[in-house]
Design a protein around this nucleic acid. Structure first.
Lengths: 119, 119
DNA sequence: TAGGATACTATAAAAAATGTTAGTATGTCT
DNA sequence: AGACATACTAACATTTTTTATAGTATCCTA
C-alpha cells in the first residue's frame, strides 16, 4: 500500500527523528499538502467526500483519497459508509483528531501574525 | 535561489491554500524534514552550526544549511557571524520564532498521546 | 608540513510527493 | 436509452524534497 522505500536513508531519518521527538512524529502525520486543510474543515463537524472536494477546489480526487486514507490510517478521522445509490461516505474527526483543533487554531493565529512580520 | 517552478500546479495550490488558511501557511513554513527539530533545539537558546549538527546526527550539511537558510528567510531564526578562525556562527530563534515554542510543545504532547492510541 | 576545526557550497542522483487522465459500479432522472 | 451523481482506483508523468559526495578558505597545532 505505501510506496515508501523502507531501506532508504530518508525513511531511517524520519523514524529516528520521530522516535526521539514526538513533535516531529506529529508533524510527519500532519504533513502533506492537504492534511491540515482537511482537518480544519472537519473541525466543524462531519463532511461527505464530495463536500470536502467542494471545499478544496483544486484538489484532485486522487490526492483527496490519499490524504483521507492516510488520516484514517492514523486514526485522526473516521469513515462511515451509508449504502445506497448514490453511495454516501462521511468523514469525521476522531477523539484524538479533535484534540488537534486547538493546535490548528494556534497555528492559524501564529500564521496571521507571521504574515505581518514578513511585510 | 529557489528551485521551485512557479508555473506548476503544485505551486499554485500551495499559494491558494496558504492565502485562505493561515494554518496551512504556517505548516508550509514549518514543513521540511528537519525544521521543527531545529526549532526544538533552539527553543533552549542559541546554538552554533556545529552544535546543531551534533544534535541532529544524521543530517547532511547540505540539508542543515538549506533548512537554516529557509528558517532565516522566514525570519524564524537569526544568524550572527563572529569573525575569526575558525569562524563562529550562532543561530537563535527570533521573537516570532519563540512564539512557536508553545505550539511545538502542544504538538509534542499530542504526539505522545497519539502514539498510545496507535498501539 | 600535514592535518584538523569551522561553516559552508556545488553537482548530481535517488526518493517522495503531487498532478493528469482515464476508468469503475449502480441506480435515479429525463 | 443516455446523461448524471457519488466515491472512489489505476497507470503514468511531473515536480519537489532529500541524500551522497566532494570541495572551498583560513588559521592553529602537532
Amino acid at each position: 500500500m505505501s510506496k515508501i522505500k523502507e531501506t532508504s536513508t530518508n525513511f531511517a531519518n524520519k523514524q529516528a527523528l520521530a522516535d526521539h521527538c514526538s513533535e516531529v512524529y506529529a508533524s510527519i502525520i500532519l504533513g502533506g499538502q492537504w492534511s491540515i486543510a482537511i482537518c480544519s474543515w472537519l473541525a466543524n463537524g462531519k463532511l461527505r467526500y464530495c463536500e470536502l472536494k467542494k471545499s478544496l477546489p483544486n484538489i484532485t480526487e486522487r490526492m483527496l483519497s490519499l490524504q483521507l486514507r492516510k488520516l484514517e490510517d492514523h486514526k485522526i478521522i473516521s469513515r462511515s459508509v451509508f449504502a445506497g445509490v448514490p453511495p454516501r461516505v462521511e468523514y469525521e474527526l476522531t477523539a484524538i483528531g479533535y484534540e488537534l483543533v486547538p493546535i490548528i487554531k494556534m497555528l492559524e493565529s501564529w500564521g496571521e501574525k507571521h504574515k505581518k512580520c514578513m511585510d
